[in-house]
Write a protein that binds this DNA or RNA. Structure first.
Length: 858
DNA sequence: ATCCTCCCCTAC
DNA sequence: TAAGGTAGGGGAGGAT
């Protein structure tokens, strides 16, 4: 998975996909990194090859670098006969047993060896060993709650919801990327065609020509996915009531401060609305009937397991077990229920098999819904194979079962809604074609809660209107529905209950927000702990933005805070309990992905809210208003210009230092992005010097700014107040690879920055070819030209002319002309003329002649 | 009218 | 013990 960079997370096997996906820029970066890594410092680890298992300190990434720089080898996978050492600081018992035969060594072995400059004996660093004089197993302290530094990664490694979320986005991206390839061969269609020809007699009736008209959508859904995938390696449990969960049995510790009854009561109270007058008895009735999420706490005592059942088999469902039910409750209902643990790797494997099979062999017209559920437009497949929808379903399901060893169900219909409802009817392990003629009858008896968008609340609201089926719902007028539920919701209810659904299959996935939320294990003692954790969340958000190469222009903070009436401890171990929720958002002046900036904003909100850290139960950080960086890249011209315009990039007299003011948010990204794109090639002399001065205050607190250390004139430290300077020096000591530095500056986001720079050198860094590429991207990706970008291009060209590189200028203008010619908007054409005007002016000045280029768009 | 913020709801 | 994430849609109500 491209979106996960370094962690050992099981997606490493997707290597081919990752490689194919790498953009040019990423390649440049990788090559650069590789180049640096070639710089071998020692041979300490010669002959050693490691595989890093789980979270370690130093990180897997860091260990990799250390190995590469010091003669060792880093394996992304454990290769039993080749990997010499497994590095881990924490292994679950099961895995530990499994790996007992191998050398499992603590990461300190590597860092200490490096420190000593020689390879130390690993005996003292074994995570466990068989020496009876030593403790058998050296268990590290496990991350208990979010105040521990390893909590986040451990949580992510165990959270099913995190997994299904990230997998869903991953597969949306996978579909996106796969669709970009030029595929003409669909071997599955050939197999199907052959099979249909051989089976011809069987299904004559379905070859109905009227069915061929219009779109045919197929919905594929794996049957109780986690269970099926889990049973691949436990075939002996097939046919039994099985549930996937963290709990190993119904054993739970009694904890102080827990009050199931009180907590449950609060949920119920909120659910039915605090201020409404109610008849007690009726309420109880109502609550039970509509089953709010909180009722799952009902009938559970303090020592019952509060773990959730992520997925249960159909046999278990027959006995009343439901997904999301608590283990304690489920075991009471069905003591024979078999509990099996999660197997995240297996889920990934099965899901990937499902997707690649369909996309390689049948069609690229796939909409990914989740790891185990997708829609496909089968019009083309049916057309080219002459198969009936049912034949396609039969054949495809057979193949999927062969490949994944898991059953799936498929529904077919003329739109997504019908296909989905058909799947529901087909389950388990079946198929159903909802033919046009039977839609009316079919819809009448469909439960309203099967309509997409109708969940707990809407379902309840409808039920109070005496409506439980689509038939009953269709009796309501559009107007009634809209006034009752709002315009859009009303309209879609109106359409959906009639089996109508205009939604097109969505193949293009464009993320609109990126977030990282944790509402489990949040227990802080003080502000330092909460801030540390928030920083980690910001890092996580930055990582996710980087992975999709986007920046966000707005930050939203979501908090869960223990409700004043809620028991001190939640019924669920380390759960959030009954909480009040708060969201606050803040817009940025400039889009960013930088953790440190996000933190800045979040921290400001946190300070305003002034919440006791010990009352926090959940934290989420979300980036909105996303912008793709390929678009931002044109914006980088803007940065380039706005940084330089006071310097007159082109003019010969540029060495004189200039001062300018900007708000810290404006400023933050600029040196980075400019330098990134206009990377000086091996040119250390033209280092950009930034000098920070005129701080308004000595006591650093709120506002922060970033300075890229490698570009900072060391003497700038002298200009800082003593305490600030100390802080910076400490931070430098703590991390020698520091690229960014936070410079707090209280009560003003304004700081003065003095820049000394020979701009002509900067200009030299932009190679002609790079500029061409750049311009192409600008014109292709931007909707309309920004003035500043116009100026940038124009100045660049003028500069070329001044440097007597008229040939190059000519070429670029030609290219620009061709690009703009294919654009419809007049503004682009205007842009061309503006740029041309500047160039011709210089031409006239210097050569007393105009350049011969196109001056009209025909 | 239209947009923005703060929710809530839903789905997997 | 337990791992209650994440993205998108949309409504209410206020600002423009």
């Amino acid at each position: 998975m491209k979106r996960n960079r370094n962690e050992a997370n099981g997606f490493e096997m997707w290597g081919g996909y990752m490689e194919a996906k790498k953009t040019k820029l990423e390649k440049q970066f990788t090559e650069k990194a590789a180049g640096n890594n070639n710089h071998v410092k020692s041979q300490i680890f010669k002959g050693i090859s490691i595989f890093v298992n789980g979270y370690t300190l130093p990180s897997a990434d860091e260990l990799k670098r250390i190995m590469m720089e010091n003669g060792g080898v880093y394996h992304h996978y454990h290769r039993p006969n080749i990997t010499t050492h497994i590095i881990a600081s924490n292994l679950p018992t099961a895995k530990l047993k499994l790996l007992k035969q191998f050398k499992v060594v603590k990461p300190e072995w590597i860092s200490d060896s490096l420190k000593e400059g020689k390879l130390l004996n690993y005996d003292g660093y074994l995570l466990f060993n068989d020496n009876p004089n030593q403790p058998k197993i050296d268990f590290p302290v496990r991350a208990k709650n979010a105040s521990e530094p390893t909590f986040l990664s451990e949580f992510y490694n165990n959270s099913r919801l995190h997994l299904i979320s990230t997998m869903a986005t991953t597969f949306k991206h996978l579909v996106n990327d796969t669709r970009k390839r030029n595929q003409t061969d669909y071997p599955g269609r050939l197999r199907l065609k052959k099979w249909v020809e051989q089976n011809e007699v069987k299904d004559v009736l379905s070859h109905d020509s009227e069915l061929d008209s219009g779109k045919i959508v197929m919905h594929i859904d794996m049957d109780c996915f986690f269970v099926s995938a889990g049973l691949v390696e436990r075939p002996e449990l097939r046919g039994l009531p099985v549930a996937v969960t963290h709990a190993k049995g119904n054993l739970s510790k009694k904890r102080e401060g827990v009050d199931h009854g009180a907590e449950f009561g609060l949920y119920v109270k909120r659910w039915r609305g605090d201020d409404n007058e109610h008849d007690e008895e009726n309420d109880e009735e109502e609550v039970r009937e509509i089953k709010p999420r909180s009722t799952k706490r009902d009938g559970i005592n303090e020592t019952d397991s509060m773990a959730e059942i992520a997925c249960c088999s159909y046999e278990a469902r027959k006995l009343g077990i439901k997904n999301g039910m608590l283990v304690g409750q489920a075991l009471k209902m069905c003591p024979a229920l078999k509990l099996i643990p999660y197997n995240f790797e297996q889920y990934k494997k099965v899901a990937l098999t499902l997707y690649t099979h369909i996309m390689n062999d049948y069609t690229l017209d796939v909409e990914a819904v989740s790891c185990d559920e997708l829609y496909l437009d089968c019009s083309h497949i049916l057309e080219t194979t002459k198969a009936s929808p049912i034949e396609l379903a039969t054949f495809l399901r057979k193949e999927i079962k062969e490949k994944t060893k898991c059953p799936c169900s498929t529904g077919i219909g003329s739109n997504c809604l019908l296909a989905r409802l058909a799947t529901k009817k087909a389950k388990p392990d079946g198929q159903f074609y909802l033919e046009p003629g039977i839609i009316m009858d079919f819809m009448r008896n469909i439960d309203i809660s099967d309509i997409p968008g109708v969940g707990r609340t809407l379902g309840h609201k409808l039920s109070t209107l005496g409506i439980s089926t689509c038939g009953e719902l269709s009796a309501l007028s559009l107007q009634t529905l809209q006034s009752e539920f709002g315009n859009k919701t009303g309209f879609s209810l109106y359409k959906h209950c009639r089996g109508e659904d205009d939604r097109k299959l969505n193949y293009d996935y464009k993320p609109k927000s990126v977030s990282a939320d944790v509402n489990y294990g949040i227990r802080f003692q003080n502000k330092e702990e909460s801030e540390n954790f928030i920083k980690q969340l910001c890092d996580e958000v930055e990582k996710r933005l980087d992975d999709i190469e986007m920046n966000g222009k707005a930050v939203t903070l979501k908090l869960m805070i223990r409700n004043a009436e809620a028991p001190k401890e939640s019924a669920k171990f380390l759960g959030h309990g009954f909480c009040d929720n708060i969201t606050k958002s803040s817009s940025l002046t400039k889009s960013t992905s930088k953790s440190i900036i996000i933190f800045q904003v979040v921290n400001k909100i946190m300070n305003q809210l002034d919440i006791d850290p010990s009352e926090l139960r959940g934290i989420g950080i979300q980036m909105n208003k996303l912008e793709s960086r390929t678009v931002t890249r044109a914006g980088r011209i803007e940065n380039f210009i706005s940084n330089m315009k006071s310097d007159k990039i082109i003019s010969t007299n540029v060495s004189e230092p200039k001062s300018f003011q900007c708000s810290s948010t404006d400023y933050l990204n600029k040196p980075k992005s400019v330098m990134d794109f206009f990377k000086p090639k091996e040119d250390l002399n033209s280092k950009k010097h930034l000098k920070v001065s005129n701080f308004k205050s000595n006591s650093p607190h709120e506002s922060l700014a970033n300075i890229k250390m490698s570009q900072v004139d060391p003497s700038f430290l002298d200009a800082l107040p003593a305490d600030l300077r100390l802080e910076i020096e400490n931070e430098l000591k703590a991390n020698e690879n520091l690229n960014f530095l936070t410079i707090p500056n209280e009560n003003s986001s304004i700081m003065e920055v003095t820049m000394t720079e020979e701009s002509s050198k900067l200009y030299q860094h932009v190679q002609i070819d790079q500029m061409k590429e750049f311009i192409e991207e600008w014109v292709v990706t931007e909707n309309e030209p920004k003035t500043c970008d116009n100026i940038m291009v124009s100045k660049y060209l003028c500069n070329l002319v001044r440097d007597a590189k008229t040939e190059d200028a000519y070429e670029i203008i030609r290219k620009l002309y061709r690009l703009i010619k294919s654009k419809d908007q007049v503004v682009w054409k205007q842009s061309y003329f503006d740029i041309l005007k500047d160039v011709q002016e210089i031409m006239l000045n210097l050569y007393n002649a105009k350049m011969k280029v196109e001056t009209t768009f025909r």
